[in-house]
Amino acid sequence: MAETDHTECLHRYLRYARDSLLWKLEDLSEYDIRRPMTPTGTNLLGLVKHLGMIELGYLGLVFGRHFDEHVPWFGPTGLLRDLDPSTMEADFDMWATPEESREDVIGLYRRAWEHADATVAELAPEAVGRVPWWPDKRNPVTLHLILTHVVAETQRHLGHADIVREMLDGAVGSRRDNDNMPTDDRRWWEEHRARLEDAARRAGQR
């Protein structure tokens, strides 16, 4: 890939982040993938649900490419184009109800990929769209700008997923085929953490 192909470069980073996010849910129970691990409720399946909405909105609706599949949490009609955020519960897309299965949420996320990928493939980087939920001064937008935004959003939430998964069962790593960790020796990590704790305490006593 030529380094000048900025769209493909961004798209590659998006695909990497998508796969890594879903890896964070593997081998966990239904309870653990939904379990709120922060005071604001951050949970793994909710991150997947949220990012599905992000891709369908930014890399679909913004460019007039509607996703016409009926999805219950999109509102009364089940269509994203009719979603009225003012009538929705706050953070409705950041958690899954007991009725929404893992397969439902992950399946929608994968179909959102396909919808978004078609937008990236079929439109030029300079293609113009409009983000209805952004102020007028930030519109219109280009596909290149929005793809950059979606990559940043996905990577940000992947970082949340990294921390949530480590809090759940201690599993770490950036991806299945390369965890990017210096060692898996538990004693090394215990000593390393103790060293950091000592450094923090001594700095705090200055």
Rank of each mutant, 00 (worst) to 15 (best):
D68E: 13
Y13R: 06
E100W: 11
I146V: 15
Y109G: 00
N180F: 10
Y58I: 10
V141H: 02
S29R: 07
I163V: 15
G78E: 03
V141N: 07
H144G: 14
E69Y: 03
R206D: 14
R176G: 10
D93G: 09
I33N: 03
N43W: 07
E122N: 09
D5T: 01
Y109F: 15
G41T: 04
F67W: 10
E26F: 04
P182Q: 01
T97E: 13
S20V: 00
V71A: 06
S29P: 05
G64R: 06
L196F: 12
T119P: 03
D185N: 12
D184K: 11
A121H: 13
E197C: 11
T7C: 09
R156H: 11
L80H: 03
N178F: 15
E99K: 08
L28E: 02
W113E: 12
A161G: 00
D198M: 09
L44D: 05
D68F: 02
L45D: 04
L10P: 01
V120A: 08
E30I: 00
G173V: 11
L44K: 02
L44F: 01
L61V: 10
P72V: 09
A2H: 15
V150R: 09
T40E: 15
R138M: 13
G46I: 01
S86T: 11
T142L: 07
E3R: 08
I33A: 01
H50L: 08
K137H: 15
T4A: 13
W133P: 04
H144R: 13
P36M: 03
K137N: 13
R187A: 14
D198C: 09
L145H: 12
N43F: 04
A124E: 11
R175L: 07
